[in-house]
Design a protein around this nucleic acid. Structure first.
Lengths: 128, 128
DNA sequence: CTAGGTGCTGGAGCGCACTCCAGGTCAAGC
DNA sequence: GCTTGACCTGGAGTGCGCTCCAGCACCTAG
């Protein structure tokens, strides 16, 4: 698979894929006869996983740490697991925060009640 | 209240507070005799709300839109409500994504099972 | 044989959200 | 009277995560 197709399949831009390789987030891709990257389908799994880490707010430098451990092989499994467990807790905490914010948001939206300000005046920013 | 105390109370840096004022996210603060900012306690409510918008991933440019409508007065209430409702949906969607990612993360962590790789080999990245 | 499309590299540029600095004013305490 | 510390301004700098460019190579279709 060439980089253009990989881009189409992952939703990442060609620029981004090359950037990820440059910084070491993707392994250096094998090349075909004319030095063009030739990807194995297995890269899709890794990229998808990176996408989840990104969605959940992991900074690239942490993904790099994980990628580096992974590249070192099986003996780093424990450390990788630990890293993921820590990340999971961070994500859970963040979800909790978001839900708390949603509650506040709901209350505030309720303050904007009828949408067409049938209410007298009453600054909605001063509540909750 | 002077800017230093406001910083302490909000957890934002003095730099950030001045920056927010510069870009219009905070109203231009009233000044005391020596042209130092003198804040009313009511600013705390607004800053706290901005914090919620930020936590929930709203970019500053959207907060500015909201702030601008708010500054225009009561007749923009409907539009502000609409803006918040849209944002709420975006946040809900994001929370959903995060929860899906958490499920994947749980599965992957389970793959790193006993933490100390008692399992033979079996690349945890190739599952789920 | 040539035009168009895709790929390559190293490096520059960008938008965001701060963060910090120089050089100055001012009030309080010793 | 002098130091200290908090504040002021306009503008420069930072880190992140891309995004794009120039200038070139290669392959395929017409």
């Amino acid at each position: 698979m060439k980089i253009g197709e990989l881009a189409r399949r992952t939703g990442l831009s060609v620029y981004t894929l090359r950037y990820y390789e440059r910084i070491g987030l993707l392994p250096r891709a094998g090349r075909d006869a004319s030095r063009q990257r030739d990807y194995d389908a297995s890269i899709l799994t890794w990229i998808e996983f990176l996408g989840r880490l990104k969605t959940t707010g992991m900074p690239i430098r942490d993904m790099l740490r994980y990628a580096a451990l992974r590249a070192e092989g099986e003996e780093t499994a424990a450390r990788r697991g630990e890293l993921l467990r820590r990340h999971r807790e961070a994500v859970r905490a963040h979800v909790g925060e978001l839900q708390a914010c949603l509650t506040v948001l709901d209350a505030k939206i309720a303050g904007y009640a009828g949408t067409d300000s049938e209410e007298p005046s009453h600054d909605a920013d001063e509540q909750s």
